[in-house]
Amino acid sequence: MNLTLYIWRQKGPDKKGGLQQFKAENISPEMSFLEMLDVVNEQLIKIGQEPIAFDHDCREGICGMCSQVINGVPHGPQERTTVCQLHMRHFKHGDSIYIEPWRARAFPVIKDLIVDRSALDRIIQAGGYISVHTGGVPDANAVLISKKSADTAMDASECIGCGACVAACPNGSAMLFTAAKITHLAMLPQGKIEAARRVCVMTEAMMREGFGNCTNHYECQAACPKDIRVSFIARLNREFIKAQLKDTG
């Protein structure tokens, strides 16, 4: 099939960018979306132009590196699917496809479709961990954890840190990402101990990094490739209230 692509090109962080039109020809439905872009890039190189820069690594939907807004939806039209797992069988001959980078103040564009997501790392850095030392821990079965809690913790920690939630959120809020980590750790007895402090420092880091506030648009959940639920945001809010009630000093 043949497609018309409109892709955001931007030479550098401080440069002006714009959409540029490309033709993708003889695309097979078996290809992944990124393989389709590979084909376009190979052609660009052969005619002496610079290929389109985009982030990607594992190409199996787990590293969270790929990040493109396709026709107005982060990670494209298929639910619970990263760009790299999206296949061309979901498009038709003659389609026009708009491809843009994640947009948020906290995610400045580096080049073309590549943005800087290190702000997410800094949210984790603020407190998205359990402060355990290596060695000197009890036997793994010493603390029992109900299957339900473990399952919920796992649901939350499936977040791949891609930032699609931020890209989708009209407020550029990183609430879903942050809530996933808060929930993951709050569900486990090991993580509960620091829960109150964690929710405060992580939400503060979120603001510091220039993410917006969550006003419950729920776009994030719709865009999330790992099905992280907005119910985790409610849990974050709950944890925050608990922390406030606890910490009156």
Binding site: Y129, V132, V137, P138, A140, V143, D151, M154, L188, Q190
Partner: peptide, 22 residues
């Protein structure tokens, strides 16, 4: 064996059975 202990302490949500064991 130490690895499993360490990871559990860090909050790695390994699969568990209904009794709460790994």
């Amino acid at each position: 064996n130490n690895i499993i202990d360490q990871c559990v302490a860090q909050g790695v949500p390994f699969a568990r059975d209904y009794a709460g064991y790994l």
